[in-house]
Design a protein around this nucleic acid. Structure first.
Lengths: 163, 163
DNA sequence: TTTACTGCAAATATTTTGCAATATC
DNA sequence: GATATTGCAAAATATTTGCAGTAAA
């Protein structure tokens, strides 16, 4: 199972991070981190909290927030914002070898789908940003998914209805 | 004054939009729209509300929100989200001829600076998104501005301090 | 034993909603 | 005059904070 390997690596990363800053290796932190590997790619704080509850593992929402912030600071997670959605988190791609993961978002139903585009990545990473040092380039493409586009056609007839 | 021309055009756009949907041309809506032309490129709902108050024009915050939503629906404004910032609005570039406006954000001080990149725009607009129809591609580059990078160097010495 | 961390509850920040009063059409 | 829109206050949503109790080191 390749997932297992990745999970162990990320766990080790967390251990190192905590140790190096004399922070504590609490069971909550590792339980949360483990659970993240069984969540969808882009999950919210409440997704994680509810998942823990359903597993019968009680953690306060405050601790979920604390841990998520910690994981981001430690470079294990990245944050993404999408119009009309709560903050999403995703396992960091920094360690990954592949192309960056970008997202498209349907402005009607809110559906989010990921895509990759090595060419755009090249453009993003090759160009200079002046005195600014980029660490995390993000591409978000808002638009319409197929089914919302269809629905939109039906509900927006050419002839305006009269009163 | 080229600004004046743009403002008139956008005002006309709003008038058309309202007329075509039998919505009302209230003074608040036009006052808000006008004020936006004298705000920074990326402004928040409270920026706009406070600007109105300082001009001695009383509008409720609820109306500011209503109008901003309306302006976005009418295609006059676009919304942008940045980590650690309230929602920002910006005059739509749809009508503009130039390249798309993208943003870089300093993750330490929160400073936002815009940049353009016609090559990336080409990549974004040329590629296919499958059954998904893109309307608004956004690039946000998080990183460090020069001054925060300097400060960071000072406060993160090579040798960890011992307890 | 020390103090970082958790859970809880209250606080904050941002945006939305319900509704009576008002003003556009 | 009909009703879309405003302003206000309350509600909803998402996240942060203060603090007492708990547990990792």
């Amino acid at each position: 199972m390749p997932d297992e390997k990745a999970r162990a690596a990320v766990r080790a990363q967390l251990t190192d991070y905590l140790q190096s800053r004399q922070m504590r290796k609490t069971p909550e932190r590792f339980a949360l981190l483990d659970r993240i590997f069984h969540l969808p790619d882009l999950f919210s704080s409440t997704d994680l909290h509810q998942a823990m509850e359903q597993d019968g593992y009680r953690v306060s929402l405050a601790s979920v927030y604390n841990s998520l912030k910690l994981f981001v600071e430690a470079g294990l997670l990245e944050q993404r914002l999408f119009q009309g959605h709560p903050t999403r988190f995703t396992l960091s791609r920094r360690s990954a070898v592949g192309p960056l993961r970008h997202q498209m978002v349907c402005t009607v139903c809110g559906k989010i789908r990921e895509f990759t585009d090595p060419e755009i990545d090249q453009q993003l990473l090759r160009r200079s940003y002046g005195s600014f040092t980029p660490t995390d380039p993000q591409v978000t493409v808002y638009g319409l998914c197929r089914s919302c586009k269809k629905k939109n056609r039906k509900s927006a007839p050419r002839t305006p209805r009269r009163p």
